[in-house]
Design a binder for these strands. Structure first.
Lengths: 164, 164
DNA sequence: GTCTATATCAAGATAGAC
DNA sequence: GTCTATCTTGATATAGAC
């Protein structure tokens, strides 16, 4: 329910009062379930990280795992834009379940065979493109598909076993 | 003055009241200078975009323009983290001076010789890496320099005249 | 686990005088 | 261009009863 609210109204719309309204209870009652608002957000974030972790691990079972990973990443970000922002913009709160965060990064570690430098570059590209796309930074009506493809080609080349 | 406040306190710290305090006036007086808060932010953003535009145009006068551009981008983001976020996270308000936005993108257009696809990929990488670095997403004490270098190499290869 | 009542705070913005 | 006074809104969170 909190997730539906987040996705329909954005981060600013996710207030204790509005969430309580949707649940048909009063805001103070929420504090029986979550210590504070951050705890509520952390639960949402952890759920999302776990979900994306599963999704991306499935995606890289593909002939072209780099391309498949990036497509899965983009698809996730576009399907859950506000949850994506909540999860990836601003430092991660230290109380977010570490296992969830670990799960979200698993696919990229497999993909880059533990090369942290390559993994972080891949993540950065996916994150940057997702953010710019979500923020409509390429102008209205821009075709973003081929931008993703450009990076897919560049990164696949950089990640070739012999090259990386 | 607004910029100093933004950089020292972050976006949330940039309120009409706090800015007025710093200026030694009362908050309502600000509305003689700016129609609303968004107009104030837009002025800050336009200033930043122009500054980065000049800076990046100078940077690409280099033997290795791709590397120099990325270094300049990273340096700018790290030197003005809150202005960077204000300028590049969330859609750009339509009332921001278009000439400033155009100027900020000039260097990348030159660098990629007008190839929009390549230019947007380059921007996405720089943006993603900047954001993840500003948000401390690589963990405490992570070495980010070599991550940037990985992307520099990958993008330089992808942008070679014969390759792109 | 939920309620009412309330504390506390801070935000953007306007009216109208000087 | 600045002021005082004020409006309006909405947020997180706590105390204590049921």
């Amino acid at each position: 329910m909190a997730r539906e609210l987040l996705e329909s109204e954005g981060s600013v719309g996710l207030s204790m009062r509005r969430l309580a309204d949707r649940l048909g209870i009063r805001a103070p009652s929420l504090y029986s379930h979550f210590a504070d608002k951050q705890a509520l957000e952390n639960a949402l974030i952890a759920d999302g990280l776990r979900e994306f972790g599963e999704l991306s691990l499935t995606a890289i079972q593909d002939d072209d795992p780099v391309a498949a990973y990036l497509v899965a990443y983009r698809t996730w970000a576009n399907a859950h834009p506000h949850l994506y922002r909540l999860s990836y913009v601003e430092p991660l709160d230290s109380r977010v379940d570490p296992a969830a965060a670990e799960r979200a990064g698993e696919a990229i570690r497999i993909l880059t065979r533990g090369d942290q430098r390559a993994g972080r570059s891949l993540w950065a590209y996916a994150h940057g493109l997702s953010m710019l796309e979500l923020d409509s930074r390429f102008g209205p009506g821009a075709t973003v598909d081929d931008v993703w493809q450009f990076g897919i080609d560049a990164l696949r080349a950089a990640l070739r076993p012999q090259g990386g």
